[in-house]
Design a protein around this nucleic acid. Structure first.
Length: 321
DNA sequence: TAGACGTGGTA
DNA sequence: TTACCAAGTCT
């Protein structure tokens, strides 16, 4: 392979690909899945664990087996189906992407990196992943798992840098096998290794197929050189937006702002008139428990409207039609 | 380019 | 219990 990062005898590629064939999880979007199914899975898996994506993906594909079927659905229904996967803007972007597939790609998922990258919600990782896993293309796939495996196995560091660097992309490109089929298995294998063995916390080095060639092990497993910065949550707009979205998903009719802001008992009583009183009442209860400042609630609502996740009609807030 | 953006499982 | 973390993207 002739790369400056000497991987002893280049057995790493063989070892990891074999480990992948023997150990890989049997996920529904692997093996014989349509490109549409793979695209949906990649969007859902952005920052969301496999175990939570799986059931939603199954329902999603049964309900909307093609981009055309999905594009014909309303945004509100799409957001409800998205459920609690998180980052609901992804659902809207997927919907917009499906519309583009119908309008510009004859209802099919394009098979090149550049065309995929042009779709809403599809960035460099997802474009490469779909091109590779749906169409067998040789692409430099770099996700958080692959970055971490490379950092340890090749560089000898506990964690990759906080932000993706050009050097990391260059390394990933360097390590990519020339043969397309092998490159696909390599990408999937390294990703799977990062997800199952070379994990962020408490890596299972005893199960690693390439532990004897790991630069991090060889260096004595040095600690990370920086502290991961946390993801603020309590008291943030994000938390409020999430609670409001839970209410709107459960509500069958527009929810007046007073209800979002008002006391829980009043909210529960009003919610009893909806088709899903328990869900709405519970969602309102959670929202109210946040004791959100009025200004912050206004900001969260305005943000949701700006992002197209909610709309304000005369009667109140609701999911988009 | 750093920050915003949901949600729930795990240690 | 608090904090980290998960197949990122967009601005």
């Amino acid at each position: 392979m002739n790369c400056p990062h000497k991987l002893e005898g280049d057995t790493v590629h063989q070892e990891i690909r074999q480990w992948f064939r023997e150990t890989a999880r049997d996920l529904p979007w692997r093996g014989g899945c349509t490109p549409w199914g793979i695209l949906v899975s990649e969007i859902m898996l952005q920052q969301t664990p496999v175990v939570r994506v799986r059931p939603v993906w199954e329902q999603w594909m049964a309900r909307w087996p093609t981009p055309g079927a999905f594009a014909a659905e309303s945004q509100g229904e799409v957001l409800r189906a998205w459920g609690r996967l998180g980052y609901p803007r992804r659902a809207l972007r997927l919907h917009a992407a499906a519309t583009q597939l119908v309008q510009r790609h004859d209802g099919a998922v394009p098979d090149t990196f550049d065309e995929l990258l042009a779709l809403p919600g599809v960035g460099s990782y997802t474009a490469a992943a779909v091109a590779a896993f749906a169409f067998g293309r040789r692409e430099t796939v770099v996700d958080t798992n692959i970055r971490r495996v490379h950092a340890r196995l090749v560089i000898g560091q506990a964690l990759p840098s906080p932000a993706l660097t050009a050097a990391e992309m260059a390394l990933a490109a360097e390590l990519l096998p020339e043969d397309p089929a092998e490159s696909v298995e390599w990408n999937a294998g390294v990703m799977e290794l990062g997800a199952l063995v070379c994990t962020a916390r408490s890596p299972k080095c005893g199960l690693c197929p390439v532990i004897d060639q790991c630069a991090w092990i060889a260096a004595g497993q040095p600690e990370p050189t920086y502290l991961p910065k946390g993801q603020p949550w309590a008291g943030t707009d994000r938390q409020v937006r999430g609670a409001v979205m839970a209410v709107l998903r459960a509500a069958e009719s527009p929810v007046h702002a007073d209800l979002l802001w008002g006391p829980a008992v009043e909210a529960a009583a009003a919610a009893a008139h909806t088709d899903h009183p328990d869900d709405v009442a519970a969602a309102l209860q959670k929202l109210h428990e946040l004791n959100t400042h009025a200004l912050q609630l206004q900001r969260a609502l305005a943000g949701l409207v700006t992002d197209g996740l909610a709309q304000l009609s005369g009667d109140g807030y609701h999911l988009p039609h």
